[in-house]
Amino acid sequence: MADVTLVRGDITTQAVDAVVNAANNRMRGGGGVDGAIHAAGGPEVLADCVRRFPDGLATGDAGWTTAGAMPARWVIHTVGPDRRAGQTDPALLVSCYRRCLEVADELGARTVAFPLVSAGVYGWPLDDAARIAVETLRDTPSQVTEARLVAFGEAAAAAVNAWL
């Protein structure tokens, strides 16, 4: 089980084996974390998404690409549930974190930086998103030694800190 840590900052600058992207189903870039990762990683990230995920990814699933120009070696993309579109089952959000850890294990990644999946434009309540992230990362067997939750703002950091 991973040691769950918290940092405030920019996920694209984390010196870890893999960063997690909160992607959309199409896997072609978007806004928020997804847009930041594609911008920081450069065109190699999108090209790898197109090659590896021609049909996209299902909600709750995860897969990997190169990290391009970012300090990390890989990006683990996961598609979180969109509460605003009626995807309210917490099991979908739990699945995102579990699948990311499974993909990390397949890659041999030991340090992984995570955003709070679905807590932005997808409308998942911040406190609940933080609880699900911390509990799932702590309770899921994995070879990952550090699961670093990267909070972009103070509200996200406080929400995560409440569950650590």
Rank of each mutant, 00 (worst) to 15 (best):
5 T>C: 00
6 L>P: 01
10 D>G: 01
12 T>L: 07
17 D>G: 03
20 V>Y: 08
25 N>F: 00
26 R>G: 03
32 G>D: 12
32 G>N: 10
35 G>F: 03
38 H>W: 07
40 A>Y: 09
42 G>L: 12
43 P>S: 14
44 E>M: 10
45 V>E: 14
46 L>I: 11
46 L>S: 10
47 A>T: 03
48 D>R: 12
48 D>Y: 13
52 R>P: 00
52 R>M: 07
53 F>S: 11
57 L>N: 00
58 A>K: 11
64 W>D: 15
65 T>W: 08
72 A>N: 04
74 W>D: 08
78 T>C: 04
83 R>A: 14
85 A>W: 03
86 G>T: 02
88 T>C: 14
88 T>Y: 09
94 V>K: 12
96 C>F: 00
97 Y>V: 05
98 R>W: 04
98 R>H: 13
102 E>M: 04
105 D>W: 04
106 E>F: 01
107 L>E: 13
108 G>Y: 03
108 G>P: 00
113 A>M: 01
114 F>P: 02
115 P>W: 11
118 S>E: 14
119 A>S: 15
121 V>S: 10
123 G>M: 10
123 G>K: 09
125 P>V: 07
125 P>A: 13
128 D>M: 05
131 R>K: 15
132 I>D: 02
132 I>F: 04
133 A>N: 09
137 L>M: 11
139 D>A: 15
140 T>D: 03
142 S>M: 04
142 S>L: 07
142 S>G: 02
145 T>V: 12
147 A>P: 03
148 R>Q: 13
148 R>S: 03
